[in-house]
Nucleic acid binder design. Structure first.
Length: 316
DNA sequence: AAAAATCACAACCGCTATTTC
DNA sequence: TGAAATAGCGGTTGTGATTTT
């Protein structure tokens, strides 16, 4: 057998806008007793409302940590970026904007941002426009927003494992939601590498490789033949997961105990790491990414961390 | 000045996953 | 173990405010 019904629809419970008196009853009761069971709350608080209605009123409007007022440009940008990758997952977006509710963000999107983007021709990523066309620029803007949003989400995800020694993180960790404890570690750690691979495969990656071959500033020690992106990506993944789950093997380089080719592989690792850092610097300048309001963080692991992890794994 | 149109947002509806009995 | 309640979520609606005609 189940439980008794939450709301008895035959009792003529009140619907519609809440009065200030009702709000006060609800706030006073919750501040004194907590909400406990939403089913019982209306009766205990003296409200002629359904428990669900009380819960929604509290979570969407009366909660003390809700920040009312107009959305800041930063918040608007965040919403657009996050929506570009998660779609109408308002609760996920709200989790990145402290003090804002999913309902508020949803309303703001539907009444403001969607229209703004539509006016700009950005309501949907344009399909396959010609290079250099306005549509192509729009597409690039979308891709840039998407990458930055993915970076933020990845940062939050990796923040959940930082206490175990994985990737260092920043103030973004403070906004990680309580539900993050259920995040899959492998998925979290793989994400920055995925973004790296996409960057590497994008126009920015092409531009980087072109410039690398011609720029006078390129150190002579860097090989003309770049290491495959997969190598760098794999080393990133390994470096970030090393303390959670020691990698079984690297794609390149010897296994533990294989000393015969250690020196040459050490050189390869060093070259890959150097390439990695140069590319991140290049992409960061191109996109102006990864240095947002979270405070100058870098999504990707610092070179020394990466090097230590890769070399430790390969040669110890 | 009044009616119509539009905007903004709180609240409700209905669905789903989870929890409880 | 299954039925039903609960909580959370996204979509939609209702309504008051504002702007336009």
């Amino acid at each position: 057998m189940g439980r008794a019904p939450c709301c008895d629809r035959t009792k003529g419970l009140k619907k519609g806008p809440w009065t200030p008196e009702e709000d006060k009853l609800l706030v006073d009761y919750i501040q004194t007793n907590g909400h406990g069971s939403w089913r019982l709350l209306p009766k205990l608080a003296g409200l002629n409302r359904c428990g669900k209605s009380c819960r929604l009123r509290w979570t969407n409007y009366l909660r003390p940590d809700i920040m009312r007022g107009p959305f800041t440009p930063e918040e608007q940008k965040s919403i657009v970026q996050l929506h570009a990758i998660v779609g109408n997952k308002w609760s996920m977006i709200a989790a990145q904007l402290p003090g804002r509710t999913d309902n508020e963000i949803k309303n703001y999107w539907n009444t403001h941002l969607k229209k703004q983007l539509r006016r700009m021709g950005l309501d949907e990523p344009p399909p396959g426009p010609a290079a250099g066309s306005p549509a192509a620029r729009h597409m690039a803007q979308w891709e840039t927003a998407r990458l930055e949003a993915e970076a933020r989400l990845s940062l939050l995800a990796t923040a959940t494992v930082s206490s175990s020694g994985a990737t260092a993180t920043t103030a973004a960790a403070t906004s990680a939601s309580s539900s993050s404890s259920t995040v899959d570690l492998k998925a979290c750690c793989a994400k920055p590498a995925d973004i790296f691979l996409r960057l590497w495969s994008s126009d920015i990656g092409d531009s980087f490789r072109r410039n690398r071959k011609t720029a006078a500033a390129v150190p002579a020690a860097v090989p003309a033949l770049l290491p495959p992106a997969s190598v760098v990506v794999k080393r990133m993944q390994d470096a970030m997961m090393i303390k959670q789950e020691p990698p079984q093997a690297l794609l390149l380089g010897p296994g533990p105990g294989d000393d015969s080719s250690a020196a040459s592989n050490e050189t390869e690792v060093a070259e890959a790491l150097e390439e990695y850092q140069m590319f991140l610097d290049f992409a960061g300048e191109e996109l102006g990414l990864f240095h947002g309001r979270h405070g100058g963080f870098s999504l990707f692991p610092p070179l020394d961390v990466l090097a230590e992890a890769s070399l430790d794994t390969a040669f110890k």
